[in-house]
Amino acid sequence: MYELSFWAWLEEHQLPCLLKGVFGIECPGCGFQTAVLLLLKGELWESVKTYPGLIPLAVFVGLAIAHFMGVKKIAPGVIKFAGFVCLLIILISYLLKLIIH
């Protein structure tokens, strides 16, 4: 009897990209699920290569959650800056992916 590992099961059950399925081009979020799985496995560098915006996105979400939970030392300007940097990294890596591939 064939037994799947947890990681193999997660890799086989990733959600498909609707934009890629309909139009044949990747969206700015393509690679996110794979990068999360790689990060959870401890493969940080592979995760960053797969989706460069994952770590900045995690920092942004963490700052936003901490701010909304009542941490007063996190100024809204810091959250906006982190969000802008995150968006910039995602868009630049997406454009590079479209140009190179």
Rank of each mutant, 00 (worst) to 15 (best):
Q14Y: 13
E43G: 00
L38Q: 13
E12D: 02
G42S: 08
T50A: 01
Y51A: 02
K41F: 11
H13G: 09
V36I: 14
L10A: 03
P28Q: 02
Q33D: 11
F23I: 13
K49E: 09
G31Y: 05
L15V: 05
W7V: 12
E26S: 07
C30Y: 12
L38W: 09
S47V: 06
V48N: 07
F23A: 13
C17M: 00
Q14V: 14
L38K: 14
F6K: 01
Y51W: 01
H13V: 12
E43W: 12
E12M: 03
E26N: 07
F23M: 15
G42Y: 12
A35C: 05
G24Y: 07
G24I: 06
Y51S: 00
E12N: 06
L40F: 15
L19H: 00
T34K: 14
C17K: 02
V22Q: 12
T50H: 03
G42M: 03
P28R: 04
L18T: 05
E12V: 01
S47D: 04
I25H: 07
W7L: 09
P28Y: 03
L39D: 05
L44S: 10
V22G: 08
W7H: 11
L44G: 04
E11R: 14
S47R: 01
G42D: 07
T34H: 10
P28K: 07
Q33A: 13
G29L: 08
C27H: 08
E43I: 03
L44C: 14
G29T: 02
L38E: 15
E46Q: 08
Q14G: 10
L18G: 01
G29W: 00
P16F: 01
W45C: 03
C17T: 04
V36P: 08
C17L: 08
Y51E: 02
W9M: 10
V48Q: 04
L37I: 15
T34N: 14
S47L: 06
K41W: 09
L19E: 02
K49S: 03
L38Y: 12
H13M: 10
T50C: 01
L15Q: 10
W7R: 15
L44D: 08
K41M: 14
T50R: 03
W9L: 15
I25V: 14
L10F: 13
Y51N: 00
S47T: 05
T34C: 07
W45G: 03
C27Q: 10
K49N: 06
E12F: 04
V22D: 05
W45T: 02
V48H: 08
A8F: 06
E43P: 02
Q14A: 05
G21I: 11
A8W: 09
